[in-house]
Design a binder for these strands. Structure first.
Length: 487
RNA sequence: CGUGGUGUACCCGAGAGGCCAGGGAGCUGCCUGCAAAGCAGCGCACGCGGGUUCGAAUCCCGCCACCACGUCCA
């Protein structure tokens, strides 16, 4: 097996060889829980979910860590002016929402979005606030090695000294002199930093900030810097070296550059591969909280089923830009219905045991080759659709053995892509189904009688009535079949 | 300006010197009382200009346009 992935650090597709035989360790940056999730967040999670599922299919035991950044400037700022769940209350009764409550509320929103689209839960999902001691230890190691220093003024900050680390900039191949500290940051912090590009490992407590967002440290009370959080948590759960570090492309710089610098400067080998997913754009512009052009997963789920949304967000190559347009979901829905139509028709005519649907035995070689090659999902979907067509042809010709093989292949492919986790809309189950079946079958019997008499008006009237109620009738060689309209 | 990346048909979207991508939309046919589904086929391509080659969307050179990041971002 030769898995190949694009590594952002080396800017090339190269062979993936796990550091430890039979295992893979993956860390990817989750959300800063300061607002509602948008589809860009979910696209990232789906991309790494596909990666995880594929590594597992390839026989690796995968440990996945996705962090939750639950302390940050924006969370504090938002809680200071937010009235959260009390928003509807009388102004006198409103209470500012505590920062940690706000963070937890949004964290749950993210979990809901991930769950609804079939993103597997990570092995560990650490929160930044639960790892302050590990962060202190990392800062101390950096100070001991001469790569970090307490602020030159009395702010209580601790900074990473970028000039002390010659490899700073290597992840994004930038020359340090070409980088600029943000102008406002530069003006404000020039007196505390050795270099305007130095970034905060620890942020000293400032008057007016909530005392609950304050931790003691050897350098004064305060809270952790953003980049440090991930470094400390990766190492705690995956060790000083691990296979893959992932995240959105927009995190490459400064976040991942800084993470890599501080961890390697502290003596850790850190990530073997860096993988970044492309952005989701809305009519050509990056979808982002700060621009305010976001589309939420919930909005998409109002337009299409979870299975369709998952298909749509996961169909493009993970490194490409995904431009969302309103018609995108309709096109995805047509493709998914084509797949599901085959699954439904084939399942109805084929009996087999669940154990026969073993993905390892049924995955087409071309699909495997596509996925092995930097997760080429679009090409893999081509194989999936070709298999569907072959399966439909086999069904039409009565070749049930071929249809069965196609069905099991299709089920295997949809499973590894995570589509099965988002359940297909099932026919109504149990007693309701039994009742429906009796009623509809009676209608179909009446219609069959009308058709036998060539009474097309009566036949069509029955079909139209059922269609209006969401029951789709299709005439086939073996008589009419019905199904409930999806979505 | 620096760094990384794009540009493929009506839309989405792979591929990477010759040999079918795939999906959606459209058209035609088969099947059908009609429809739907399915199947078969059709049309419309590789940003621009050069070069290499028997042959270039693919390699080389030069342009153009666009996107992302450049200390808030997935």
């Amino acid at each position: 097996m030769t898995l190949r992935f694009y590594d952002t650090a080396s800017a090339e597709v190269r062979d993936f060889v796990p550091l430890e035989d039979g295992k893979a360790s993956v860390y990817y940056c989750g959300a800063t829980v300061q607002g509602m999730p948008h589809v860009g967040h979910v696209r990232s999670a789906i991309a790494f979910d596909q990666l995880t599922r594929w590594l597992e299919f390839r026989g690796l035991r995968v440990t996945v860590v996705r962090n939750v950044t639950d302390i940050d400037d924006k969370i504090l700022a938002k809680s200071a002016q937010s009235f959260g769940p009390d928003w509807d209350a009388e102004p006198s009764a409103r209470q500012a929402e505590e920062w940690w409550a706000l963070a937890y509320r949004y964290e749950q929103e993210f979990e809901d979005a991930y769950d609804s689209l079939g993103v597997q839960r990570p092995t560990y999902e650490p929160r930044a606030t639960g790892h302050i001691p590990e962060m202190h230890a990392l800062i101390q190691r950096l100070i001991d090695r001469g790569h970090a220093y307490p602020a030159l003024d009395d702010s209580g900050d601790v900074y990473f000294d970028v000039r002390s680390w010659s490899k700073y900039g290597s992840l994004t191949r930038q020359n340090i002199d070409d980088m600029q500290g943000a102008p406002d940051v530069e003006a404000q912090f020039i007196s505390r930093k050795r270099d305007p590009r130095d970034f905060a490992l620890w942020k000293g407590f400032k008057d007016g900030e909530p005392v609950t967002a304050k931790w003691d440290s050897p350098w004064g009370a305060g809270r952790p810097g953003w980049h440090l959080e991930c470094s400390a948590m990766v190492t705690k759960y995956l060790g000083p070296r691990f296979d893959i570090h992932g995240g959105g492309l927009d995190l490459r710089f400064p976040h991942h550059e800084n993470e890599m610098a501080q961890s390697q400067a502290a003596g850790d080998e850190f990530a073997n591969f860096w993988m970044h997913n492309g952005m989701v754009t809305f009519e050509g512009e990056k979808m982002s909280k700060s621009i305010g052009n976001t589309v939420s997963p919930a909005e998409m789920l109002e337009l299409a089923s979870p299975r369709v949304v998952r298909y749509y967000l996961g169909q493009a190559h993970y490194r490409s830009i995904l431009d969302y347009r309103p018609t995108s979901l309709q096109e995805a829905a047509a493709a998914v219905e084509r797949i599901d139509g085959f699954i439904a028709k084939a399942s109805a005519r084929i009996s087999g045991s669940a154990s026969e649907v073993a993905p390892q035995a049924n995955m087409p070689a071309a699909f495997i080759a596509a996925m092995d090659d930097d997760l080429n999902v679009p090409q893999a979907l081509g194989v999936l659709h070709e298999t569907v067509r072959a399966g439909n042809t086999a069904l039409a010709s009565g070749d049930l053995d071929a249809a069965k093989a196609a069905l099991y292949s299709v089920l295997s492919m949809t499973e590894v892509l995570g589509l099965d986790a988002v359940k297909r809309p099932e026919a109504v189950q149990g007693r309701e189904h039994a009742a429906l079946e009796v009623l509809i079958d009676a209608q179909l019997a009446a219609r069959a009688a009308a058709r036998a008499n060539k009474d097309w008006a009566a036949s069509d009237a029955i079909r139209d009535t059922l269609a209006a109620a969401g029951v789709v009738v299709e005439d086939g060689a073996d008589g009419a079949t019905w199904s409930l309209k999806r979505d």
